[in-house]
Structures are given as C-alpha cells and as structure tokens.
C-alpha cells in the first residue's frame, strides 16, 4: 500500500481523507492463492487418473493373456496360471443383489416412517440409530458376522426356510449349510447398505412438496394411499438413485464380506454355498501372490471392480440429480 493510511491517525479530523497519491498495489497474494487452490483441486483428477493408469497398466498382462475369458471363465487356478474371474464377478453381483432385495423394502419403510409417520420426538433418535449403522467399521460387521450372524443363520433361519417352509428342495436352499455363505454375505451387506439407502430416500421424501400431499388428501385418500400414490411416485427416481448408491457401496465392500462369504471361487445356485467376491478375492490373495501374472490378475479384478462401480455410481448420481431438478411433467 502506497501510503500507510492508518498509521498517523492521532491528529486532525479523524476520518478526513488525504488526497490519494497512488493506487499501485503489490499483492501477489491473490495470484498465489489462486494457484494453490487450483493445484489442490487438480489433485483430484490427477489422483483418479493415476489410479486408473496404475491399475490399468498393472492389469494389462493378465487381461491380454486371458482375453475375454478373464470375465467368462470360472477357472481360477493360480498354479496353472489360469485366471477366470467369473465366480468372483458372479459372487459380487449376487451378494449385492441379495443385499438390495433385503435392504430396499426395509429402508423404504424406515424412510416413510421417519418422514411421514413417526411422532416428532421419535424421529431424531431413530434416524440417529439408523445413520449410526453407516459409522460402524466394516471389520466390526465382519467380526459380528462370524460369531453371531453366521451361526444364527445356520442354526435358525436356514432350518426355518428348509423345514418349516419346505424350500429345502429348491436350488436356492439346496446343499449343505456350513455357515459362511452367499446368504450370510447378502444379509450383512443389506445391513451395511441400509443406512445409505434410507438416508437418501428420507431426503427425497422430505423434498416432496406439501402440495402433492394436500392434493391427494383432498381427494379423500387415506394416509397410506397419499404416501403410496402421491409421495412415492414423485420421489421415485430419487429413491432408485439411493438404492443404486447403496448398490455401489455393497459392490465394493471388502472386509465384512470376506469374513462371512466362505471364499470359494465356485458358482453355485444355492444361497447356502460359499462364494467369492472381487473385493474379497483381492483381499485374500494379494499379499500371497508371488508370480507377476497372479498379481496382474488381481489388479485386473480391481480394474473390473473399478469400472463396475464407476458405472453404478454414475447411474445413481444421474437419477438423484434428476429428482433434485424436479420431475418433468
């Protein structure tokens, strides 16, 4: 600053401005600031690019050796150097699918309860408890899964399905039930995806305008009819977005699944049979991989997982964005 404006304020009319002599400034601060925050912002694309390139390059040997059979073949044989990731891809998709089938109605129910039905004093605590599910570390879910969920499913739930409901002869519930299974993985993933789905659903339900509700009630709808026929349709694509967001979480989940799915690279129709997911395959074999091709194959599994979650999250974002910008009537 050319003249020290404030330093000689002791005499004379306090605020009387003196003639301005110079407006020259020497503030490189703003340029530095802009460069710094731009550099920080650019780190995000750079990091993502680095991840994509690093994994792509590392995955290339295995992918080029196996070709399309990498995702179609079910033979994962480290000794023979055969790497077919189909069982892991299958397991990832099926366990996540089970999770969504279980979690979606539950999450929808909780969200409706919290946004439309619950008395005010109950909303905060219940929402807090459900949100807290998202804060529990994956490895704690796994621990709980091993020592509580898996035995409980094996000793109580599976007999109920087989004996009480007589579903033992259907392919879904055939075979021996050791405990660790696709079903256990699906259930634990459902619990883990639940808070994500219900949080998004709650938000979009709350965002539905009052007028939609009033219009339905004015037509003589019951409260449930109002919810089902006016509120839910209005929020539909947002809810689907939330479900897909939960799917994205489930697909990439590693520890809890690894601890309860049984880790066997086979495709079985039975939900009671052990399975594998892409994330748990990497988690289990990565530190033991000695050959370059094996490492490369695991990287390739990571690459496939990367691409799948990219697509799923892209879809979710698009749907949530669509509901946020209002329905096209």
């Amino acid at each position: 600053m050319g003249d020290a404006i404030a330093s000689s304020g002791t005499s004379g009319g306090f605020a009387r401005g003196r003639r301005v002599a110079s407006l020259a400034g020497a503030a490189p601060g703003d340029r530095v600031y802009r460069v710094v925050i731009t550099a920080f912002a650019l780190m995000i694309p750079a990091l993502l690019l680095l991840i994509a390139v690093a994994i792509g390059v590392a995955a290339w040997p295995a992918l080029s050796a196996a070709g399309l059979s990498f995702i179609t073949s079910s033979e994962w044989n480290v000794q023979a150097g055969k790497f077919g990731a189909a069982p892991a891809i299958y397991g990832t998709l099926v366990s996540s699918f089970i999770a969504l089938v279980l979690a979606t109605p539950l999450a929808l129910g909780v969200a409706i309860f919290l946004s439309e039905i619950a008395p005010k004093w109950l909303r905060q605590p219940v929402a807090f408890l459900v949100d807290l599910l998202a804060a529990i570390p994956s490895v704690v879910y796994g621990l709980w899964g091993i020592f509580f969920l898996v035995p409980m499913l094996r000793d109580h739930v599976v007999p109920f399905f087989r004996d009480t409901l007589h579903l033992g002869n259907t392919p879904l519930f055939s075979g021996p039930a050791y405990g660790p299974s696709m079903l256990a993985a699906g259930v634990i993933l459902a619990i883990m995806a639940l808070p994500y789905i219900s949080a998004v659903t709650r938000e979009v339900l709350i965002a539905v305008p009052r007028s939609q509700r009033d219009a339905a009630l004015a037509l003589g709808a019951t409260k449930w009819e109002m919810i089902w026929d006016a509120v839910i349709p209005y929020a539909r694509s947002g809810i689907i977005g939330g479900v897909i967001l939960g799917l994205g979480r489930a697909l990439g989940e590693t520890m809890a699944v690894t601890m309860v799915i049984g880790n066997r690279p086979e495709i079985s129709a039975s939900l009671l049979a052990p399975g594998y997911t892409m994330a748990s395959l990497i988690a289990n074999e990565f530190t033991e991989a000695t050959s370059d091709l094996h490492l490369s194959a695991l990287m390739a599994v990571g690459a496939v997982l990367f691409v799948i979650t990219l697509i799923v999250n892209g879809m979710a974002r698009w749907l949530v964005w669509r509901v946020a910008s209002g329905p096209k009537s």
């Binding site: 994994i55 990439g252 990497i282 990571g302």
Partner: peptide, 25 residues
C-alpha cells in the same frame, strides 16, 4: 464441474481399489 464430478467418483471408489493403488505406487 469436472473436479466436482471426479470427486464423487473418487468417493464411490471401493476402498480396496485405493489399497492396491497405494501398493502399486
């Protein structure tokens, strides 16, 4: 806009993928 979108992509990335990336580098 690009950075915002990619930040969401990074957020959706499975943590195990970040693990193998960090291992590689």
């Amino acid at each position: 806009m690009t950075v915002r979108y990619l930040s969401d992509v990074l957020n959706g990335l499975p943590s195990i993928v970040l693990g193998i990336f960090a291992w590689q580098f």
